[in-house]
Deep mutational scan, measured.
Amino acid sequence: KEWNEKELQKLHCAFASLPKHKPGFWSEVAAAVGSRSPEECQRKYMENP
């Protein structure tokens, strides 16, 4: 399903605030978004950083 504005906001906010070198980075991003898997978050971010 399409990403909504709130999900995208959470994605970018989590990406900006979490340490990128940490193992499980995308899992933490997904936990912050709440409604998406780590894979979905990574794919979406890579599509549209």
Rank of each mutant, 00 (worst) to 15 (best):
F25L: 09
K10Y: 04
P38R: 08
A32Q: 13
K1A: 01
C41E: 01
S17M: 06
H12Y: 10
G24A: 09
M46D: 10
S27Y: 05
H12S: 08
C41D: 01
H12E: 12
Y45V: 13
V29E: 01
S35I: 05
C41H: 01
L11H: 00
V33H: 01
K6G: 12
P19C: 08
P49Q: 15
L11V: 01
P23R: 09
A32S: 10
K10E: 11
L18R: 07
W26E: 04
Q42G: 02
S35Y: 07
S37V: 02
G34F: 03
V29R: 01
E40H: 02
W3I: 02
E39V: 09
F15Q: 14
K6E: 09
P19S: 11
E40A: 05
H12I: 07
L11S: 00
S35C: 11
E47Y: 06
K10N: 06
K44F: 08
L18K: 09
S17Y: 06
A32Y: 08
N4S: 09
F25H: 04
E5K: 13
F15C: 14
S35Q: 13
E7N: 02
E39Q: 09
L18Y: 08
E2D: 15
S35P: 03
A31R: 13
G24C: 10
G34S: 08
E28F: 06
P19L: 03
F15Y: 15
G24R: 12
Q42D: 02
E28K: 15
G34T: 04
L18G: 10
E28C: 08
A32R: 11
Q9M: 06
V33D: 02
K6Q: 05
V33L: 05
W3F: 09
R36T: 03
P49I: 09
Q9H: 13
R43N: 15
P38N: 04
K1Y: 06
H12C: 06
P38V: 10
Q42N: 13
L18C: 11
L11W: 07
K22Q: 12
M46V: 10
L11T: 01
K10D: 11
E28Q: 08
P49N: 08
C13W: 11
W26Q: 03
E2P: 05
P23F: 06
P49E: 15
R36A: 06
L8F: 03
S37Y: 03
E47R: 07
Q42Y: 07
P38S: 13
E47D: 14
E28V: 05
Q9S: 09
H12L: 10
L11P: 01
S37L: 08
S27E: 15
W3S: 03
S27H: 11
V33K: 00
S37I: 03
E47S: 10
E40C: 02
N4P: 01
S35A: 12
A31C: 05
P19W: 04
C13A: 15
Y45G: 06
A32K: 13
K1T: 11
R36M: 04
P23I: 08
W26T: 03
S27I: 08
E39H: 10
H12G: 09
E47I: 04
A16Y: 03
Q42T: 05
V29W: 00
L18W: 04
E7K: 00
A32N: 12
A14C: 06
G24S: 13
K1D: 06
H12R: 08
K22L: 08
E5V: 09
K20R: 13
V29Y: 00
K44W: 10
W26R: 02
N48A: 14
R36L: 01
